[in-house]
Design a protein around this nucleic acid. Structure first.
Length: 473
RNA sequence: GUCCCCUUCGUCUAGUGGCCUAGGACAUCGCCCUCUCACGGCGAAAACACGGGUUCGAGUCCCGUAGGGGACGCCA
């Protein structure tokens, strides 16, 4: 049997990190079955029935986020709103079959019902006052809502692939609204109908939907439809232990992109947040597809830890192709240097990327360290670097300038030999000579191997940068 | 308040009754490597929420307590 999963975000904002993980798990589960089972498809449905809160921008942001993460969906994204007619038709069917009824309560009346129930410590449920009332009693001029005639006795159980069997007494559940007074479907009805119509076999979503599943199962039963497999994955919590919500500082995936994270790092991190495969930490996508199973999803919520994401990101940066990193860094450099890039920045970066990427944990750090190849003369030295080219440092620099000018073959081996020879003759530790050089050539006290930097910058630029420093002061 | 769920190092987790003196990863701290910073290597510190059972034996099973979370909309 083919596995069909779906990701069903409501377009009220960006794709936040929790949603991204839900999408990842759905995608992985479908891909796993596509490659190792008897087929799998991953669908995308935009839950835009709330017209007031849904926006085009949000839809675009969500699609963008998924694409950035590399989570491609099968077929076109489905707009739930466009299915409203179908939803109403099903509500009508339920009504005709006696599994639903019209309720003429006003929103105010319901609010009172809830308020007094809570005040008295009772469950805040609809009391079913129109469940068996004669429709002839309907107040004139009031558009009714349609409610499900839910069972009052027995229990409803969710066989959940992550949470196990979760049960509730039907007495705890009230008759939910399926169709609003204006004829539009509620979320509960719409999800069930759409999942059924789209042939969804596995509903993998956040744990905050677990209690919704009870009600949805009742709708499936009312319709006589087969209930899909459920898998409610634990939520991601913020540092304070509460659910990561948008108003809680949860960031959109675009924010992580802007902070210099690679999509593969974000995916790897998200995958490991709540799921594990023994002691494995670095898990490439193809490996994830092979290994992913709902059985190994944990049951407890996890806190988001940027440090670990950052560490993973450093790993993936080191592993990334140099050319790709150059492409990612160039626009960042253009921005930070305000367009004033050295002419051969790109070719220098191509040569220097191997040394650069080893030292960066984010693309932002990478771009910052890459500035040494992009800046035009004269460089401005930071405070510590400026100190380093004073006094002894200045003297060494002067000597070193001469030695470098005389190096026959401009290779980092020959350059290193030249500098080492100088240090030995002057009876210096290599660092005493290397640091002033680094300061003069990069304006900083930290950089890739200074010999590599010298080679890449080229003789003219190197001598020029040294002269700039020796000139002033 | 009611219902549902969760509980192993600071964090993510391994662990499915004996292999646990509880393993790995991130973070932290030391040492090594070293032209700086990283990377890498080695090492340290760090956890089974608590209380009862069941069992020859419990981190692993059961019950309770505490703590945390989620859901209780004509939102999704």
């Amino acid at each position: 049997m083919t596995v069909v999963t779906r990701f069903a975000p409501s377009p009220t904002g960006y794709l936040h990190i929790g949603g991204a993980r839900t999408a990842l798990y759905n995608w992985l589960f479908a891909k796993h079955h596509a490659e190792y089972g008897s087929g799998g498809r991953f669908l995308l449905r935009i839950e835009d029935t709330d017209r007031k809160r849904s926006t085009e921008d949000a839809v675009a942001a969500i699609l963008d986020g998924l694409k950035w993460l590399g989570l491609d969906w099968d077929g076109d994204a489905v707009s739930q709103f466009t299915m409203a007619g179908r939803h109403a038709e099903i509500a009508r069917q339920l009504l005709d079959e006696g599994n639903a009824y019209k309720c003429y309560c006003s929103p105010e009346e319901l609010q009172e019902m809830r308020d007094s129930a809570r005040a008295e410590g009772r469950k805040t449920m609809y009391d079913g006052r129109w469940r068996d009332r004669d429709p002839a009693d309907a107040p004139p001029g009031v558009d009714p809502v349609i409610r499900l005639r839910a069972p009052h006795n027995g229990e409803t159980v969710i066989p959940d692939m992550v949470q196990g069997e979760v049960k509730v007494n039907n007495g705890e559940l009230d008759d939910m609204i399926l169709l609003r007074a204006d004829g539009s479907p509620t979320y509960m009805l719409a999800v069930v109908v759409d999942d059924h119509d789209m042939g969804v076999s596995h509903v993998i979503r956040g744990d905050d939907h677990l209690t919704n599943a009870f009600r949805q199962i009742q709708i499936y039963h009312g319709l006589g439809w087969e209930v899909p497999q459920f898998a409610h994955i634990p939520l991601i919590h913020g540092a304070d232990g509460a659910k990561m919500s948008k108003r809680h500082g949860a960031l959109g995936v675009d924010a992580y992109r802007d902070q210099g994270f690679l999509p593969e790092a974000v995916c790897n991190y998200l995958l490991r947040l709540g799921w594990s495969h023994g002691d494995d930490e670095i898990i490439r996508r193809d490996q994830a597809i092979e290994w992913f199973a709902l059985e190994s999803v944990g049951k407890s919520p996890a806190k988001f830890d940027v440090d670990k994401l950052t560490s993973l990101n450093g790993h993936y940066i080191r592993e990334a192709e140099d050319a790709r990193l150059v492409d990612l860094v160039m626009p960042l450099l253009a921005r930070s240097l305000d367009g004033g890039l050295a002419e051969d920045t790109e070719s220098r970066l191509a040569k220097g990327m191997a040394g650069l990427k080893e030292r960066a944990k984010t693309l932002l750090e990478l771009a910052e360290s890459a500035e040494i190849y992009a800046m035009t003369r004269p460089l401005s030295l930071n405070e510590k670097a400026a100190e380093m080219v004073e006094g002894d440092g200045r003297a060494h620099l002067t000597s070193l300038r001469g030695r470098l000018a005389d190096v026959a073959t401009w290779s980092h081996e020959a350059l290193e030999t030249a500098v080492r020879t100088y240090a030995e003759t002057a009876e210096l530790k290599l660092g005493k000579a290397a640091q002033p050089l680094r300061a003069a050539l990069t304006g900083r006290t930290v950089s890739p191997s200074i010999f590599e930097v010298i080679e890449i910058l080229g003789r003219a630029e190197v001598l020029g940068r040294i002269d700039d420093v020796l000139k002033d002061g």
